[in-house]
Amino acid sequence: MIDAYLEIMHGYLVGRESESATADALERAGFSPSSSPVAPSSSPSTFGVYRELVTRQWRAVLDHFFRAARAFALASSRTDDPTWDELALAFHQAHPPTEGNPNVFCLPFAAYLEARGCGAELVELADFAVTRYRAMHVAHGPTPVVEADVFARTYGFDVVSFSRAAEAGEAGCLLAAVPTTVVIGRSRRTGALRVVRASLGALVALSEADGSASSDQLPAGLTRALVESERGALALEGLLP
């Protein structure tokens, strides 16, 4: 019998059924409002608050996880773009939370925005948030593995500066169209998040450490000394052993 209750409430919570239709369905299933011996001030309709509350919950998670992307979307005035509210709702419908950790619900958001054809600014800001989360929630192996515990990204915009400002609550931040390459990881020394603007030499040092690039051949313009210098800098940040 309780399964019928849960199924009916599911239809209500996902927005498939109205509150009154849900109340009727509950009554038909034997969940009569008149059977309650308590709560003189409550009425059968008061459970209607729960759709609002669950929406508030997942929205709070999404809005907090993507503070910078949300700030950009809210400030963006292009009328043909979907609003942040529309994007959030559509994402929730396409990817409802299925795990207890609410942050996991947020992880497909950047890919979702990209698949929808959203602007690169929004996609990159979302990706930067997702990548930082991933970097902080993986174990370190003896050697770094790119895209597993340390991440290299090249963005078309300066998402680092914008995110830092937006997440600090600064108003009027501007997202500069400055190509930005970063290495993102959790420091092997301090455990803290590190976001380091990276040169080509740093990317080569990273690829060599993870075994995906040979140390025999360097891209044109790079010297072994420069790569070693960048390797040392990444090690100081705790991004390389």
């Binding site: 019998m1 309780i2 209750y5 849960l6 199924e7 409430m9 599911h10 919570l13 996902v14 969940f31 059977s35 309650s36 308590v38 459970f47 729960y50 509350l53 669950v54 919950q57 997942w58 998670v61 409802p96 939370p97 299925t98 795990e99 207890g100 609410p102 619900f105």
Partner: peptide, 25 residues
């Protein structure tokens, strides 16, 4: 409470009817 229906997490603590069926479950 219940916080999951149909495989979906609601990220909230949702109420049950105070009845025997719910108590048993």
């Amino acid at each position: 409470c219940f916080s999951r229906t149909g495989g979906q997490e609601w990220l909230d603590l949702l109420p049950l009817p105070f009845c025997a069926a719910a108590a048993r479950r």
